[in-house]
Each structure stands twice: as structure tokens, then as C-alpha cells.
């Protein structure tokens, strides 16, 4: 079983090191082979909204940079974890950029989900379990709630929580999750 972890090179404080260490230990106990990937400012181009990944080179971004290998890792992992600083209740710029440029992995078409909302279908029949973990010291309650809502209100099957250094938070959250590939429902 393969786990990939994407983190922000520009926010690697003590809290981040604790988070990373704990996750590494927990995944190790579960028998995962874990790969860490870090992105910093300037490592990835910004999405240009060109839709080339849908209509010119389907499934691949037109820009050749590290995002191609990150997207390949996404598809080929059993678990994919984003570690993002919570900035204005959202992802940091580096992580948000990686999320924008994840869209080669979905199809251009619209589909209507059971709750009536619109979404694009997955390009692949099986996806990694996605876990999004926000972190930050002394975060405002509104920002923690917003970080959760951004994902939970719009995505199915994605786990999200915010870590502020609480003892045993990560093991508690992980114990309630199923690990391994999931279906294509986004």
C-alpha cells in the first residue's frame, strides 16, 4: 500500500514537524510505504484555466513541471494526504495551486450528484483515499470551520480535519478512517 503526502515547504514549523512525524509513524504501523513531497513558492506554475488538460492533452497538464509527477502519484497511491497551513480559513497558496492543477484527474463533463449539486466526474475508476489536514497555531474558530466546510460541503469521500498540536488528535482521527483506494465518486 502506497501513501503520498504533499506539504508546503514554506510553512514547516514545529507544529508541522510534529504532524509529519506522527503521520509517518501511524502510516508505518499500518504497513504503508510513504513518500513525502514538498512544494514551495515558485515550484509550480499557476493554473492558467486553459482547459488543455481536458481538451488538448486529456489527463495531463500542458505545463511541464513537478505537477505531472504529483498527479501521477495521486492516481497511483492508495492514500493521498495534503498537509496545508490554514491561511484565511483556506489552503496555503502552494497547496491551493496544487489543488487547482489536480483537475487533469477529472473529466470536463458536468454530472449531477445525488444531492442535486453539479460536479465533474473522476477520470479514473478508483481514487486514493484523500485526507486533507490543515494546521496552524492559535487559529480562529471561524477559520477552522471554514477550512472544513470548503472540503466537506463540496466533496464526497474526502476526510478533513485541522491540527493545532492536540495530543492524540491524529491517531484519533485516523482510527475512524478506512484506508485504501475508494470509488470514483467526487
Amino acid at each position: 500500500m502506497k501513501a503520498s503526502i504533499l506539504s508546503d515547504k514554506d510553512y514547516q514549523n514545529g507544529l508541522f514537524q510534529n504532524l509529519k512525524g506522527e503521520i509517518n509513524t501511524l502510516l508505518d504501523h499500518k504497513g504503508f510505504e510513504t513518500e513525502f513531497m514538498e512544494i514551495g513558492q515558485g515550484d509550480l506554475a499557476f493554473c492558467m484555466g486553459c482547459f488543455g488538460c481536458w481538451t488538448k492533452k486529456p489527463g495531463e497538464c500542458m505545463v511541464s513541471d513537478r505537477m505531472a509527477s504529483i498527479n501521477r502519484k495521486f492516481v497511483q497511491s492508495d492514500v493521498f494526504i495534503y498537509l496545508s497551513p490554514v491561511v484565511f480559513g483556506q489552503f496555503s497558496a502552494n497547496i491551493k495551486n496544487a489543488l487547482d492543477r489536480w483537475i487533469p484527474n477529472i473529466l470536463p463533463f458536468f454530472e449531477v450528484r445525488p444531492d442535486g449539486s453539479t460536479m465533474h466526474p473522476s477520470r479514473y475508476d478508483a481514487l486514493p483515499k484523500v485526507i486533507i489536514i490543515g494546521y496552524g497555531d492559535g487559529l480562529l474558530e471561524e477559520d477552522v470551520q471554514l477550512f472544513t466546510d470548503i472540503t466537506k460541503k463540496h466533496r464526497r469521500g474526502v476526510e478533513v480535519f485541522v491540527y493545532q498540536g492536540e495530543h492524540e488528535k491524529i491517531s484519533g482521527e485516523f482510527s475512524a478512517m478506512n484506508f485504501g483506494k475508494v470509488g470514483p465518486e467526487l
Binding site: K96, R101, T151
Partner: peptide, 13 residues
Amino acid sequence: PLYVFCMPGILTR
């Protein structure tokens, strides 16, 4: 524009 349910990365930066 909304990008993946929140601000585009370029504006976030």
C-alpha cells in the same frame, strides 16, 4: 472565478 471551490491559487498567493 471559483477554482476547485475556493480562491484560485494565483489569488491565494
